[in-house]
């Protein structure tokens, strides 16, 4: 298969970026999207040109490192997958594919397609944990948890922290990301103890870091590679409201 690629190139955070066009030819349909970029990069290296910088690591959809905006969609047009799980057979032969970095004020571009998602770490540092010390804990079975609650907690905990939600949201809101963590812990008795403090601290940090407000358009959930439900945002709002009422 052959493709024309329009790829965002940007030397560093301070430089102005722009699209550059590349051709890739003789790509096997079973090649993954990132392998296709590897092939492009290898040929660029041979030409003495700088390869396209992009984030990736596990290449099996779990580390959350890969983060490409492809043809206008975070992680490409297919639903429920990360960028590394896209294959070239999903694109028409001889088509043009546009590749951009996440576009969000809170995720500044570092180089080409690589952005800084440190803001997500900062939100979790503000309160996305249960304050237990190592070894200061009861037996694992001392806290029975209804299976349905554990399952729902796990649904939310599947978030890989890739940033697609904020990058997709027209307001640049990180609500789905924050909600996934708050909701996962809110469904468990261990997490309830600090529930109020957690919701307030994480939302405050999110606002401070320049993420926008949530207007419930649902675009985040539609593009989420792990299909995290927007229902978690409702739970976050409940947690946050009850926290505020107690102020």
């Amino acid at each position: 298969m052959n493709f024309t690629l329009k790829i965002w190139r940007q030397k560093d955070a301070k430089s102005k970026g722009g699209f550059q066009q590349y051709k890739v030819t003789d790509i096997s349909s079973d090649t993954s999207f990132l392998e296709m970029l590897d092939i492009l990069n290898n040929s660029l290296v041979h030409e003495g040109k700088e390869p396209v910088a992009f984030d990736h690591d596990c290449r099996e959809g779990i580390c959350g490192m890969c983060s490409l905006h492809i043809n206008g969609h975070a992680h490409g047009p297919e639903q429920g997958v990360t960028t590394c799980q896209i294959y070239m057979r999903q694109f028409p032969d001889n088509s043009t594919i546009t590749v951009e970095p996440w576009r969000s004020t809170a995720f500044p571009v570092i180089k080409d397609l690589v952005v800084n998602r440190g803001a997500y770490d900062q939100i979790l540092q503000a309160g996305g944990y249960v304050s237990v010390r190592t070894n200061s804990v009861p037996d694992g079975n001392a806290i029975p948890i209804p299976k349905a609650d554990a399952d729902e907690s796990m649904d939310a905990a599947a978030c890989v922290g890739c940033g697609a939600c904020a990058a997709t949201c027209k307001n640049g809101s990180a609500m789905l990301f924050v909600a996934a963590r708050v909701s996962s812990l809110a469904k468990l008795p261990q997490g309830r103890v600090e529930g109020i403090r957690r919701a307030k601290a994480m939302v405050a940090k999110m606002d401070e870091l320049g993420f926008g407000n949530c207007t419930n358009t649902g675009a985040c959930a539609a593009e989420c590679p792990k299909k995290i439900s927007i229902a978690h945002i409702a739970r976050l709002n409940r947690e946050f409201l009850s926290a505020k009422l107690k102020d």
């Binding site: 944990y129 249960v130 237990v132 190592t134 070894n135 804990v137 009861p138 037996d139 694992g140 806290i143 948890i145 209804p146 299976k147 554990a150 399952d151 907690s153 796990m154 905990a157 996962s184 812990l185 469904k187 468990l188 261990q190 997490g191």
Partner: peptide, 12 residues
């Protein structure tokens, strides 16, 4: 025990 207390959603 440690992981349960941290809120790791183990299968139940």
């Amino acid at each position: 025990d440690q992981c349960v207390a941290q809120g790791v959603p183990f299968a139940r």
